[in-house]
Design a protein around this nucleic acid. Sequence first.
DNA 1: ACAATATAGTTTGACATCCAACTGTTTGAG
DNA 2: CTCAAACAGTTGGATGTCAAACTATATTGT
Lengths: 164, 164
Amino acid sequence: MPEAPRPPAANVHGTKMSEEHDERFFPAVFKEVVGFHLRIAQEASFEAFGVMAGKANLKPGWYALLTILNEAGSMTPSELSKHCGRDRSTLTSTLKALSARGLIQRERKSDDQRSYEVRLTAVGFDIQRRLHAIAIEHERRLDEILGQDKDMLLTMLRRIASRI
Amino acid sequence: MPEAPRPPAANVHGTKMSEEHDERFFPAVFKEVVGFHLRIAQEASFEAFGVMAGKANLKPGWYALLTILNEAGSMTPSELSKHCGRDRSTLTSTLKALSARGLIQRERKSDDQRSYEVRLTAVGFDIQRRLHAIAIEHERRLDEILGQDKDMLLTMLRRIASRI
DNA sequence: ACAATATAGTTTGACATCCAACTGTTTGAG
DNA sequence: CTCAAACAGTTGGATGTCAAACTATATTGT
């Protein structure tokens, strides 16, 4: 436990977040604020996934990218950028890292000398498969937490993403 | 629109995300994955807030911090760190920036020479108020999108954050 | 009382991310 | 056909984040 187990220090203004673990408070004003709860839920979920992946020495940030490539077969960095929602320049370094570790390979395109196709190597497929297994496991935990309300949640999250 | 309006380039493997704006696709595997939708909804919401705040030349990242201080009166960096869920070292630079712009002031503590209390200045209160107004507006947009399902969503998000 | 331990804040280093500017390539309007 | 505009990828600079190491101060066990 990284933070102090000191007396809760004047809880007049905050609301307790988690019944069990470390004290985490938040301003009372945020109690009903969707954006805030969206953020903490997302961070909690990502953190939990990261813990599972970290135990296997895998980078959770790779998962989306490898999965996109796994489905698509191959893609240019710009396409990849659109599909994963990150800037093209962000992908430059990520792809360099993935390439250096032998998870992907680049093939120069014959019809456009500016660009190249990225595809998974055998190692890349393997890592994708292992990360996917973790994702399945993670999703199972969320299923348990959400029960029959899961579809409702997905619907609302999609609505936010598409309509805001 | 930052990205190319080229032909959608082989949509065999992706699912369209937003009917209107830029093409954004995602792997079919993620279609029912809570973690993924949590992430895109959170990013969309934060981005929308950022646009509104950016127009007023305000940093959205300051909002939580200033609001916590507004409610609490004063706090040490470590307490602030726990309340906003960021590492203590992250706060060092943020507080330096807020201090440099005159939004907060530091007071050495008499009973602990290692630490100090942070509190809002008049300017800080003003910026907090303006960011809060933006947050209210943002929340109103989300209310419109979610309608009566908002409470349901909040309940589920809280459940994820507390139980995962 | 004092040595060992814990804590508060900072510094440094590693990433991920964005944007703006740059290089080389392709396209398209005239 | 040519050259200006669009585009692909990269580079560099800024910010936000964390973890680990560090400095100074407090607390605690004996």
